[in-house]
Design a protein around this nucleic acid. Sequence first.
DNA 1: ATCACATTGTGAATTTATTCACAACTATAT
DNA 2: ATATAGTTGTGAATAAATTCACAATGTGAT
Lengths: 207, 207
Amino acid sequence: MIPIPEKTIERMSRYRRVLNNLLEEGRKHIYSHELASLSSGTPAQVRRDLMIIGHSGSPRNGYEIKLLRNDINELMDDPEGQKIALTGIGYLGRAIMNYFMGRRPKLTIAAAFDIDPEKINRVISGCRCYHTDQLEEIIRKENITIGIITTPAAGAQKIVDTYVKTGIKAIVNWAPTILHVPEGVFLETRDITMSIEKAAFFAKTNK
Amino acid sequence: MIPIPEKTIERMSRYRRVLNNLLEEGRKHIYSHELASLSSGTPAQVRRDLMIIGHSGSPRNGYEIKLLRNDINELMDDPEGQKIALTGIGYLGRAIMNYFMGRRPKLTIAAAFDIDPEKINRVISGCRCYHTDQLEEIIRKENITIGIITTPAAGAQKIVDTYVKTGIKAIVNWAPTILHVPEGVFLETRDITMSIEKAAFFAKTNK
DNA sequence: ATCACATTGTGAATTTATTCACAACTATAT
DNA sequence: ATATAGTTGTGAATAAATTCACAATGTGAT
Ligand SMILES: NC(=O)c1ccc[n+]([C@@H]2O[C@H](COP(=O)([O-])OP(=O)(O)OC[C@H]3O[C@@H](n4cnc5c(N)ncnc54)[C@H](O)[C@@H]3O)[C@@H](O)[C@H]2O)c1
Ligand SMILES: NC(=O)c1ccc[n+]([C@@H]2O[C@H](COP(=O)([O-])OP(=O)(O)OC[C@H]3O[C@@H](n4cnc5c(N)ncnc54)[C@H](O)[C@@H]3O)[C@@H](O)[C@H]2O)c1
């Protein structure tokens, strides 16, 4: 079986969000052009993506929202659930914790870490907070497989190293620094600046 | 002149960050393969990007960091500066305000807006905070051209509409909802979930 | 039953992005 | 002077992503 392109995976997240909203509104079916416009894509792209994940609809009614959502769940979710560790309980860390809380049943932030004594041994957004000294212990105990970094740049590489040591295979990093991971570990460094600078470039070019 | 691809613009943000770090360390020159590894790319990609923006280096010494950084500045920055409005001074809004503060001299968050009386008429991270009632007035007065949204989904469309009305041409939205803008306005909706779900998919697939 | 029709599914075409591969170059050592 | 080594700049090749375009399809109206 050919692997599913990363771009398609990203769009699946978007589609799922839209579909969940529609389900709440009680909608039953959707056409490719509707899903496209609700997720800022094109109809052909939507159909191609659904073809890739092997979902089919009906020419007359389009796609059955519930079935499609379930297929996306099946594709994206681990049936046993996946746990996330987040290190750095500052503004950004808390924004992510709040936002994620309860949003994806199969994907939960199971533990958060910091060095600030004010923040440890509390429960924030339903998530237990520990001192970073306990990273290894808790990650192994809780069987956590995904790591997020929202600390300042200075401590980030050390945290990545600990994540990797515990067997974490996928990391999302928000600290503004280059991090290194061994082959086979997924690392994505995100930067809000990039999206703002892209917008700024557009504003400048079209002013 | 052919337009510069969006992907190249994104990478320029990354390159600039790396170059600024290197300048602080006192480095003078850099080769394409070094810049590539520091920004998680390939040497050919780097050279192609620099070719696209019309920067050239020397076969022996590579690229002169300062000159390259300046060329990126020239490409990306508006010489007169650009101002940003941010609406929604919560955890996420503050994370962005803190992070952006002083980072890009030519691109500043000039005003923040909220509806919570606790937050308005203060200065947070060097940025003045106003009630959303004053959006139009302040945006026009300050000549703001870029808008960020970090409010809950509910109020977001109304804020976009106000942004558009004041002539803002580029918007970055973090509220988890579909927003509509007229033709010619750049809108990018970002979602942290997407990056985490992508990482989770990788962790699941490679476990 | 049959028709009309808007939509799906998909091979092919196109566009966009990336990588290859190598001639041209340049600072340095000899 | 000249050779050398390691890099740049870029046309061409390749790969990846997107869009086109249309036959096949299923549904409701008649
Ligand atoms: N990439 C982006 O787009 C982006 C956007 C916003 C913020 N950031 C970065 O994310 C980080 C967090 O931002 P913030 O606004 O939440 O900052 P913050 O100061 O509010 O929070 C940082 C938190 O990390 C904790 N911390 C510091 N060192 C630590 C360590 N070694 N181990 C564990 N915890 C540690 C602090 O105690 C604090 O709670 C900063 O590095 C910031 O520059 C990045
Ligand atoms: N897209 C993502 O990846 C992502 C990540 C985190 C948070 N979020 C979303 O971003 C938003 C903010 O998150 P947060 O953690 O900062 O939440 P928060 O509750 O800390 O902050 C929200 C702020 O918006 C203000 N607000 C509410 N309604 C407003 C309105 N109509 N006009 C102006 N201000 C208003 C509130 O007073 C508050 O200060 C939420 O919608 C959240 O779901 C999105």
